[in-house]
Design a protein around this nucleic acid. Structure first.
Lengths: 333, 333
DNA sequence: CTGAAAGCGCTTACAG
DNA sequence: CTGAAAGCGCTTACAG
């Protein structure tokens, strides 16, 4: 039952635990004779010794654990991010604790507390609306934090993100050149800054002669609300372009078009945010905004690691370019 | 920098650390006077005390950490499982460590070692081919393990799964009544028992007068191999039904049909495994095999918890029923 | 009702 | 080259 410890090795080898510890940690500083080093390694091997990182953590104050808080790990976009972060974290020897906030500040706070009790070395988080208190508490305790995907308006901490305003403006510009009469922004009814930027950027990007409507939905019945919102806002007699500001909204919209037999791009034109396999199965391939997830994940972990090893509160933000990948879902002029 | 400890509280309150510990753990056994209990709680609150679970773990030998090893967290199916497990684990006070094996036994082993060093209380795993050694090692060290989605042929440990043979046979039966001339099983070229069962069950289920072909692909170029496999195996002059044995294969197949302008169910009929949003965006909604993920996750965590609290190696397997959800992707007779 | 003390499995100056 | 010892932040019999 009891798993082997450093003490067992020391006993069997007839040396002190200190010596075993030095050998197992390959410390170059204080040399241990090749003979005892070999003996110790062999014993460790035969008794299947597994170091107890928890004991080590307690002493060194480094757990090699990283907390990752996303909105929902079962969402395509976040699971893609999680995977990239997992790979990067692993490379640097970190293991990942994962939690989903569901956009709920209470859950978010709960997760930060859990992770902090588990002594993670830092947290990579996608902050939700009203999570400022939880974040500030972490900052006060000097917890390294890196935001991803989103950022906080009133708190300056390191993070990675894309330029949501700019790419959305580009999307607007792209559509503006194509003689649309109407544009519809489909988004969440939320105060999340990065989503507001998508909305504002889009509105700025399309020319004033295109009337711009908004369909804003809650988080609880996305599909239903998108359905009814589109139903009451799309006027098929007009040349209409739609901008779906997240993958969930995009897929909900596409399902609506399928169900209602609305053709893309013949009846409506479409651009959606984030890539998801689903976009490729729609009869018309969907133009979408692509985020450089791998690079963002890499940078997030790098920012994390550098904070852990040398805490600085400079609040460095790294902004990545997003790209509009054009397919056939937007009509030509 | 230094975070507050129980010792700080004790010092401020003028009591012993033992007393503080008792209060903070709400132990009913030994009563502490209401006065000191209140004082201690207040102090804990004001100095923002966060318990150090790592220290607690070291003493109690319980980390409240659970390891979860799946094939790939960015895959829809696994991220859905992960989410369900996260919720259940959280309910029981566990935090989740997550890792992706990529079907690689070395990575799998690496993850078990990492998790075991981090002193997780147990691991919920989707074992890969050739992971027996890694698993046996865990068993020898009395690590609680629960398999999910898959199981091991030669090792008897608790796990949750569906009856892959049976549901695949049902799928075969369902198709058998519809005058198909040809059936194609699309699967991985693998030894994973649960996937072999899908294949065998399907072959058993369709009647002998239907000739059954197989398209088996490797893990590295799924889409390409599915494309070429279908291209060389589908004979549009025959009435053909296809069974895609995973969601990845299913979406790859659907993309092929879209690209090649093959109509479903007019040209070919289709049933796929597992639900994914993508199935709903295909012009024809796809019939699919649905696993009761929530229930399976709940049971997996329950099995885990019961092992942790009372280790038993009875190797109990819990088999859940899967359902064939029929949509319009299979022609009527 | 409360405290002194041992100990969980490690690391790390320090001494020799 | 190696060991004795302190200590990381907790818990928990045991004694009073």
């Amino acid at each position: 039952m009891k798993r082997a410890s450093i003490k067992d090795i020391a006993r069997i080898a007839g040396v002190s635990v200190a010596t075993v510890s030095y050998v197992l940690n390959k410390k170059e500083g204080s040399r241990i004779s090749e003979a005892t080093r070999k003996k110790i390694c062999e014993i460790a091997e035969t008794i299947n010794y597994t170091p107890n990182k928890i004991a080590k953590s307690l002493k060194t104050n480094r757990s090699k654990l990283l907390g990752l808080i996303l909105a929902d790990i079962s969402n395509d976009f976040y699971s893609a991010i999680a995977r990239c972060i997992e790979d990067e974290a692993m490379k640097l020897g970190y293991t990942l604790l994962i939690g989903s906030s569901d956009e709920d500040p209470e859950k978010f706070k709960k997760l930060t507390e859990l992770f902090s009790e588990q002594q993670v070395d830092g947290m990579i988080v996608a902050p939700v609306v009203n999570s400022d208190d939880a974040i500030n508490r972490l900052i006060k305790e000097k917890y390294p934090i890196v935001t991803i995907d989103r950022y906080l308006k009133n708190i300056n901490i390191p993070g990675v993100m894309i330029d949501n305003t700019r790419i959305s403006e580009s999307v607007g510009n792209y559509l503006a050149g194509k003689n649309f009469e109407e544009a519809i922004y489909v988004g969440y009814d939320t105060q999340l800054p990065h989503l507001l930027e998508r909305q504002e950027g889009f509105e700025k990007g399309i020319t004033p002669e295109i009337s711009c409507k908004k369909v804003l939905v809650g988080l609880n019945n996305i599909a239903e609300e998108v359905f009814s919102g589109l139903e009451s806002n799309i006027d098929l007699s007009k040349k209409t372009a739609l901008y779906f500001s997240t993958n969930k909204l995009g897929t909900a919209g596409l399902r609506y078009f399928l169900k209602s037999n609305i053709k893309v791009p013949e009846d409506v034109s479409i651009i959606a945010f984030d890539e998801t396999e689903a976009y490729h199965l729609f009869p018309t391939e969907i133009s979408f905004v692509q985020q450089p997830l791998t690079e963002m994940a890499k940078e997030a972990v790098r920012l994390m690691d550098s904070q852990i090893n040398n805490y600085s509160d400079n609040g460095k933000k790294v902004v990545f370019p997003a790209r509009l990948i054009t397919k056939r879902s937007v009509r030509k002029k």
